[in-house]
Design a protein around this nucleic acid. Structure first.
Lengths: 232, 232
DNA sequence: AATTTAATATGTTTTTTAACATATTTTGAT
DNA sequence: ATCAAAATATGTTAAAAAACATATTAAATT
């Protein structure tokens, strides 16, 4: 991690969530925010660390994951620019309950916990906005629990592919998933071993649902993937 | 469901969460809160229903669950008196994303969504309190995801038994779990079939970790159950 | 009390998934 | 360009869990 010279607009111009701060609150925030850069695959924070900061992604991609049994990771959430993370732990004044690391070179705003909590307590509109974000994340988490526990391998993988599509969309060519993931991460999203992610992916390709070219995945039959995901 | 004649104190005297409301807010709330009663196993709300109310349990026990693939339920959360539920959907102005039903005869305060949202928007301290509750629930949900996906059957069941113990404690005799659950609910908590819940439970009994007498379960070797839960 | 129904228990079989083994390909470093 | 290391691919085996089958017991209803 290093400080970054690249200049971004103030956070309240980048994301609606932060638009309601008063002048004084903005000054407070300015004193407690820092732009930091993470290299590809660099670690941002660990499960169990004291939550010193909350974060907002500016550029790049970040994974949030939990360590499970025997080094197996479970990817909880994939972030795109202007998503916030680490805020739950800050609000509850608890250690992070998940780890974060950068998929690719990423720029992040890092805000001191005490400042963030001050803003939440002082500014009702801001508090409400953060609350809406948390309400969404909670719903996603509960849906995810059922997806991962009750669907079979093919259903879980189809689900993950559709999630990547929904979250990051297509590449410039309009066909290839914009998020190029190693098979291991795909497995960690889908609660399966890397072998099974590879195997099932190539099954999907054989069935003509997708094409694969290394990490480049094209979705050919989205409807059919949805069906597989839905039926488990 | 029926109205209840039994008298409870106003909600702001029952739970710290509601203690910060102003006089006017209390009057607003009084006009939009109702005491309702649910019989054993009665349904409270369904996944997908418009979230007309948020709820606070006063007496009894309530399960929150999601319908999964092929009629399999996943119990998301077990409630005890003064826990709130349905609040996430109200805040996000979305349909409920889970169902609720009473384990046993239960009394519940039911608050109109618009009133609840008014209070959240108007009262920063109240908003902050609800936020803290949601932060806890989000952490629990994320932990649960990993528990249910990565632990093996014995680990998941041990986890559920310990959760029941932590949540509801012991009966008057100081040994028996206060929460008497059908095997099916135990299975729905632990992401397994009823058969496997029964089988694994009787294994635990054979190993002397617990004793079972119908639905009455005594925890004999808590430490060992913790070990089984931890190792998966 | 008798009868039906639901819940619990347990053995057997089948399916699913992880674990293991081993090529092959790709990537990164020198 | 060459080599080493990592990632991908795929077949085989072992383990886990669900599905199925069928008693047995307990609870509810008449």
């Amino acid at each position: 991690m290093k400080r970054k010279d690249e200049v971004y607009a103030p956070i309240w111009e980048l994301s609606d969530l932060w638009a309601n701060l008063t002048g004084e609150e903005r000054r407070d925030l300015t004193n407690h925010i820092e732009l930091v850069h993470f290299a590809k695959n660099e670690h941002i924070h660990s499960e169990g660390d004291e939550s010193q900061y909350m974060w907002m992604l500016l550029k790049g991609k970040v994974r949030i994951y939990k360590e499970g049994i025997g080094q197996r990771q479970q990817i909880i959430r994939l972030l795109k620019p202007y998503d916030i993370f680490g805020y739950r732990a800050c609000i509850a004044c608890e250690p992070y309950n998940a780890s974060a690391s950068a998929f690719e070179a990423s720029d992040v705003y890092r805000i001191d916990r005490e400042c963030f909590n001050r803003l939440i307590r002082a500014n009702g509109a801001f508090c409400y906005g953060v609350m809406l974000t948390m309400a969404k994340d909670l719903a996603i988490s509960e849906i995810q629990t059922v997806n991962l526990t009750q669907k079979h391998i093919r259903g879980r993988l189809a689900e993950s592919l559709l999630l990547l599509l929904k979250n990051y969309g297509y590449d410039a060519d309009g066909q290839t998933l914009a998020m190029l993931l190693p098979r291991e991460d795909l497995a960690n999203m889908s609660n399966m071993t890397t072998s099974n992610a590879i195997r099932t992916l190539s099954q999907f390709a054989q069935e003509g649902l997708i094409t694969i070219d290394g990490r480049r995945i094209q979705i050919i039959k989205e409807k059919e993937l949805e069906r597989i995901s839905r039926l488990g």
